[in-house]
Simulated assay, not measured.
Amino acid sequence: MASTTILALFLLSVLTFNPPSTTAQPVTDLHGNIVRNGGRFFILPPFTVAGGIRRTKTGNETTPLSVVQSLIEVDPGLPLTITSPFKSLFIPNGSPVSISFELIPNDESPLEWTAVPGLPEGTLVKVKGYPHTLPGSFSIHRVRDNTFKLLFCTLGSSLCGNVAIVEDEAKNRLLAVNQKHPYEFVLEQLPSSSAASK
């Protein structure tokens, strides 16, 4: 009887003092600092082979709906906001996240990332506003040290794919969801919008 009581108290203390949301390993920036939930970032390659991530028009798009890697090595791309739905000050490794380009004044283009299947290059990462998007979410996973990759998983399913780079006919470096070698990146943390405007 006493051993059952001790075991129950032990389990209660473990669940009370170490809930999963507080023990998950945090995502870190390129300097090893814990990244803030809802913070502003550049997504950059760990080695200089091309630039950061931005949105642009590809194919017949009339607004910039495609998420691409810049071909210019010194281009950091566009600032992004990365938010976890968990009520945590940091982004837990492996947790679902929402990724959005930062709002640009007088630009009403969509900003949040999604995935679109059935395109000539496969399932591509676009911003919301593109027709026939897949319901699902992205998640950030540590590859090594401060280097990460993205997965996209469909809603209500365990179907997941790496976010990789593919080229279209115009040589745009498109972000795509597939089972190929993932695009590995580091996060450069930027000051908050309020601090940046001061």
Rank of each mutant, 00 (worst) to 15 (best):
160 C>Y: 10
149 K>T: 08
141 H>N: 15
132 H>V: 07
163 V>D: 10
153 C>A: 08
177 V>N: 12
141 H>D: 06
144 R>G: 14
154 T>H: 11
168 D>N: 10
177 V>W: 01
179 Q>M: 08
135 P>G: 05
171 K>W: 07
165 I>Q: 00
164 A>K: 00
152 F>Y: 12
180 K>P: 02
137 S>T: 13
155 L>R: 11
154 T>C: 13
134 L>M: 14
132 H>S: 14
139 S>E: 06
138 F>V: 01
132 H>L: 13
151 L>M: 02
175 L>W: 09
139 S>D: 12
170 A>L: 15
155 L>M: 14
162 N>R: 06
161 G>K: 08
133 T>F: 08
161 G>C: 05
144 R>Y: 15
134 L>C: 05
175 L>K: 03
173 R>P: 03
169 E>V: 11
137 S>V: 11
171 K>S: 11
169 E>Y: 08
159 L>S: 15
131 P>D: 10
176 A>L: 03
134 L>V: 04
147 T>S: 09
177 V>F: 03
144 R>S: 15
139 S>N: 14
173 R>K: 08
176 A>W: 01
150 L>F: 03
159 L>H: 14
162 N>F: 02
178 N>I: 01
160 C>S: 05
180 K>T: 00
136 G>V: 04
152 F>H: 03
164 A>R: 06
135 P>Q: 07
167 E>M: 13
162 N>T: 01
146 N>Y: 14
149 K>Y: 04
148 F>L: 09
166 V>R: 15
174 L>N: 10
137 S>E: 08
173 R>A: 06
167 E>I: 13
167 E>W: 01
131 P>I: 07
145 D>E: 15
168 D>L: 03
169 E>T: 11
170 A>S: 14
136 G>C: 11
179 Q>H: 15
159 L>C: 09
137 S>A: 15
146 N>S: 10
148 F>K: 06
132 H>G: 00
180 K>H: 09
172 N>M: 11
150 L>Y: 02
170 A>T: 14
153 C>D: 01
147 T>R: 13
152 F>D: 03
174 L>H: 05
148 F>S: 09
143 V>G: 03
151 L>W: 03
136 G>Q: 07
144 R>F: 13
171 K>C: 08
164 A>F: 00
166 V>I: 05
167 E>P: 08
148 F>I: 00
146 N>M: 03
153 C>W: 01
142 R>S: 10
139 S>G: 15
178 N>K: 10
159 L>D: 13
161 G>N: 04
169 E>K: 14
160 C>F: 01
165 I>F: 00
175 L>E: 02
170 A>P: 13
146 N>K: 10
171 K>R: 15
139 S>R: 15
162 N>M: 07
173 R>N: 08
149 K>P: 07
159 L>E: 11
174 L>G: 05
134 L>N: 12
143 V>E: 08
155 L>G: 09
138 F>E: 00
137 S>C: 07
156 G>D: 02
140 I>H: 06
159 L>V: 02
141 H>S: 06
134 L>H: 13
151 L>H: 01
154 T>A: 06
180 K>Y: 02
134 L>F: 05
159 L>N: 15
157 S>A: 12
138 F>L: 10
163 V>K: 07
172 N>L: 13
164 A>H: 01
141 H>P: 04
178 N>G: 12
152 F>L: 09
135 P>N: 07
136 G>R: 10
151 L>K: 11
156 G>Y: 00
136 G>T: 12
137 S>L: 09
